[in-house]
Simulated assay, not measured.
Amino acid sequence: MNSPKCPICQQSDIGKLDGQRAVCRSCSKSKRCVFQFCLACQREWPRDSSTTNSCMLPNCALRAALLSDTKISDPQSSARGCPYFRACPGCKALLTHNGIGCPNIVCPHCGRGFCFRCLRQRCFGQINFEALGLLNHRLSFFQDEVHVSPCKVVDNKQNLTVLGL
């Protein structure tokens, strides 16, 4: 795992205070006040909870899991290279791929299907349409509903705002 960095300036010049709480020396100097943040969820530490060493921000554990740098490394998995954890775009349940079959999964909590790689609702994953003799214009009726080009792994950090986390 990489050394922790400040979520604002991305510097490694941080000091761990206690529990999940850390202080960024660079941001504190530039802001002229102590800048504290949660090492787990990477958000500013609430000023009114400076006496506790556990983060009390909503969805801290969920954000921490999604920000983890652990990736699926199984070479046989269709989800290889994806973050180990994903949040369902529907209900935000924390999920992982079982490594078997295509990258499309169905959330066992809300029933929403999505691609574990690109997080789109409808995706053909890595199917090579040209190898199958199909041309993209033949699939034009799917244009707005299906992502027909090869999907790319989306980083969870890019998706936190969409999820409202």
Rank of each mutant, 00 (worst) to 15 (best):
A79N: 09
C151G: 03
L67I: 08
N159H: 06
L94F: 00
F129H: 11
C55E: 06
L62A: 13
C118F: 03
P4F: 01
Q20K: 11
F141Q: 05
S12I: 08
P150S: 12
C24H: 03
K31V: 00
L57W: 11
V146K: 02
P4W: 00
C102E: 13
P75I: 06
C115A: 13
T96G: 07
P4N: 04
R120N: 07
N98K: 06
C91R: 02
P7L: 04
R138P: 04
K92W: 00
A40N: 15
R122N: 09
H97S: 08
C41N: 09
V153K: 00
G125D: 03
D144Y: 12
L39Y: 08
K152Y: 04
Q126G: 07
S50D: 15
P4L: 03
I72H: 07
P58Q: 15
C115K: 10
H147Y: 14
I100A: 05
K16D: 02
G19Q: 03
L94D: 01
S54D: 15
P83S: 13
A79L: 11
V153P: 02
R80P: 04
Q20N: 10
S12G: 09
R86K: 05
S73H: 03
V146T: 08
R25L: 12
A131N: 14
A64F: 06
M1E: 10
M1A: 13
S49Y: 13
Q11N: 09
G81R: 01
P4K: 03
F85W: 14
D48Q: 14
C91L: 06
S26H: 01
R120S: 11
A93R: 00
G125Y: 01
N159E: 07
N128R: 02
V162I: 08
M1C: 11
Q143G: 06
L95V: 01
L135D: 15
Y84Q: 12
I100T: 11
C118I: 01
M56T: 14
D13K: 09
P7N: 06
C107A: 13
F142H: 08
C110M: 07
D48R: 14
K157I: 12
C123R: 00
C123H: 01
F142K: 05
D18C: 04
N159Y: 10
V23H: 01
G133C: 07
F142W: 13
Q143C: 07
L57S: 12
D69L: 03
A40D: 15
I8S: 12
G19C: 05
G125Q: 00
S28I: 04
Q158G: 12
A61Y: 01
R117E: 01
S49T: 15
A87S: 13
E145W: 09
N59H: 14
K16I: 01
G19W: 01
I100Y: 08
G133W: 08
